[in-house]
Amino acid sequence: RELEAFAERFKQRRIKLGVTQADVGSALANLKIPGVGSLSQSTICRFESLTLSHNNMIALKPILQAWLEEAEGAQREKMNKP
């Protein structure tokens, strides 16, 4: 249940930020998480549509959570600048 809720929230917030699935995939490489490079657009799509295996969903959740927090933080900074 929690994974499904996160996937839905992730998709809504990604769209609100105006970021494509492909952008998310390539931006993950910038997070410098050990062992994590970029991901394909189709992987992000399959995460959002819950068609990845349960284990893959569990593995990707903290990575996508980290990206989302960073992206939303950058958005807030941009909006707070005069």
Score class of each variant (00 low, 15 high):
residue 28 L to Y: 02
residue 8 E to Q: 11
residue 42 S to D: 14
residue 69 E to I: 14
residue 14 R to T: 00
residue 26 S to M: 09
residue 57 M to E: 01
residue 20 T to K: 15
residue 34 P to G: 08
residue 51 T to R: 11
residue 42 S to M: 10
residue 73 G to P: 04
residue 52 L to H: 04
residue 54 H to M: 14
residue 56 N to Y: 15
residue 63 I to M: 06
residue 45 C to K: 14
residue 24 V to M: 04
residue 81 K to W: 13
residue 18 G to F: 01
residue 52 L to V: 02
residue 29 A to L: 08
residue 30 N to Y: 14
residue 42 S to R: 12
residue 70 E to Y: 06
residue 36 V to E: 07
residue 68 L to F: 02
residue 1 R to C: 09
residue 13 R to M: 10
residue 25 G to Y: 09
residue 2 E to N: 13
residue 20 T to I: 01
residue 10 F to R: 00
residue 76 R to A: 13
residue 18 G to E: 03
residue 32 K to F: 14
residue 33 I to N: 05
residue 43 T to A: 09
residue 42 S to N: 13
residue 18 G to S: 04
residue 9 R to N: 13
residue 72 E to I: 05
residue 18 G to W: 15
residue 19 V to P: 01
residue 68 L to N: 15
residue 78 K to V: 11
residue 77 E to F: 06
residue 7 A to C: 11
residue 62 P to D: 05
residue 48 E to R: 00
residue 18 G to P: 00
residue 46 R to H: 05
residue 2 E to T: 05
residue 16 K to V: 06
residue 81 K to V: 09
residue 60 L to C: 15
residue 29 A to E: 14
residue 55 N to Y: 07
residue 30 N to D: 12
residue 38 S to L: 07
residue 3 L to Q: 04
residue 40 S to M: 03
residue 77 E to I: 08
residue 75 Q to V: 10
residue 74 A to V: 12
residue 8 E to M: 08
residue 34 P to F: 07
residue 40 S to R: 06
residue 22 A to Q: 15
residue 29 A to W: 02
residue 8 E to F: 05
residue 26 S to Y: 15
residue 13 R to I: 08
residue 73 G to D: 07
residue 69 E to N: 11
residue 41 Q to P: 15
residue 6 F to S: 02
residue 82 P to W: 07
residue 24 V to L: 08
residue 79 M to N: 13
residue 79 M to C: 10
residue 7 A to R: 02
residue 6 F to T: 02
residue 11 K to I: 04
residue 52 L to M: 11
residue 77 E to L: 09
residue 16 K to M: 14
residue 38 S to H: 14
residue 78 K to Y: 07
residue 40 S to Y: 04
residue 34 P to K: 08
residue 9 R to L: 15
residue 53 S to A: 10
residue 67 W to F: 13
residue 31 L to A: 09
residue 28 L to G: 02
residue 60 L to E: 02
residue 22 A to C: 07
residue 10 F to A: 01
residue 69 E to Y: 05
residue 76 R to D: 11
residue 59 A to S: 11
residue 23 D to F: 05
residue 49 S to Q: 14
residue 70 E to M: 07
residue 48 E to Y: 00
residue 23 D to V: 06
residue 47 F to Q: 00
residue 46 R to W: 03
residue 31 L to W: 09
residue 27 A to K: 09
residue 47 F to L: 06
residue 37 G to N: 14
residue 6 F to M: 03
residue 33 I to G: 04
residue 46 R to Q: 14
residue 15 I to K: 13
residue 17 L to E: 01
residue 77 E to H: 08
residue 44 I to T: 01
residue 35 G to R: 09
residue 4 E to W: 09
residue 61 K to D: 01
residue 46 R to G: 10
residue 69 E to S: 09
residue 14 R to C: 01
residue 74 A to H: 11
residue 50 L to Y: 12
residue 72 E to N: 03
residue 65 Q to L: 08
residue 8 E to I: 04
residue 62 P to K: 04
residue 76 R to S: 13
residue 15 I to S: 06
residue 10 F to L: 02
residue 82 P to L: 07
residue 79 M to P: 13
residue 67 W to T: 01
residue 37 G to S: 09
residue 35 G to L: 04
residue 27 A to L: 04
residue 22 A to H: 13
residue 5 A to E: 13
residue 6 F to N: 01
residue 73 G to I: 15
residue 59 A to R: 09
residue 43 T to R: 02
residue 7 A to K: 02
residue 22 A to R: 07
residue 36 V to T: 15
residue 73 G to Y: 15
residue 13 R to W: 03
residue 14 R to V: 00
residue 52 L to W: 02
residue 30 N to T: 09
residue 41 Q to S: 13
residue 19 V to W: 11
residue 29 A to C: 15
residue 11 K to R: 13
residue 23 D to M: 11
residue 22 A to L: 06
residue 57 M to G: 02
residue 67 W to N: 01
residue 64 L to W: 00
residue 66 A to E: 13
residue 82 P to R: 06
residue 25 G to H: 15
residue 12 Q to R: 06
residue 50 L to C: 15
residue 48 E to I: 00
residue 68 L to C: 04
residue 10 F to M: 02
residue 39 L to H: 07
residue 9 R to G: 11
residue 55 N to A: 13
residue 73 G to E: 15
residue 46 R to D: 13
residue 47 F to S: 01
residue 71 A to Q: 09
residue 28 L to P: 01
residue 15 I to W: 04
residue 53 S to H: 15
residue 40 S to A: 07
residue 76 R to V: 11
residue 38 S to P: 07
residue 23 D to E: 13
residue 23 D to P: 00
residue 73 G to W: 05
residue 69 E to T: 08
residue 56 N to M: 15
residue 30 N to W: 06
residue 14 R to S: 00
residue 29 A to V: 15
residue 7 A to Q: 01
residue 66 A to T: 11
residue 37 G to A: 09
residue 79 M to T: 11
residue 2 E to K: 08
residue 30 N to S: 15
residue 54 H to G: 09
residue 29 A to G: 15
residue 58 I to F: 08
residue 39 L to C: 07
residue 17 L to P: 00
residue 10 F to T: 01
residue 23 D to L: 04
residue 51 T to Q: 14
residue 28 L to V: 08
residue 61 K to M: 07
residue 57 M to W: 04
residue 41 Q to D: 14
residue 15 I to T: 09
residue 38 S to F: 15
residue 63 I to R: 06
residue 46 R to C: 07
residue 10 F to V: 01
residue 50 L to V: 12
residue 56 N to L: 14
residue 74 A to S: 12
residue 45 C to W: 08
residue 11 K to M: 07
residue 74 A to G: 09
residue 68 L to R: 01
residue 55 N to S: 11
residue 36 V to Q: 04
residue 37 G to L: 07
residue 69 E to W: 05
residue 63 I to L: 07
residue 27 A to G: 06
residue 9 R to M: 12
residue 2 E to S: 06
residue 36 V to K: 06
residue 56 N to A: 14
residue 26 S to Q: 15
residue 58 I to N: 13
residue 64 L to S: 01
residue 23 D to N: 08
residue 56 N to R: 09
residue 30 N to V: 04
residue 36 V to A: 09
residue 12 Q to P: 00
residue 49 S to P: 00
residue 2 E to D: 13
residue 21 Q to Y: 08
residue 70 E to D: 11
residue 30 N to P: 14
residue 70 E to K: 12
residue 19 V to M: 15
residue 60 L to S: 04
residue 9 R to V: 09
residue 49 S to F: 01
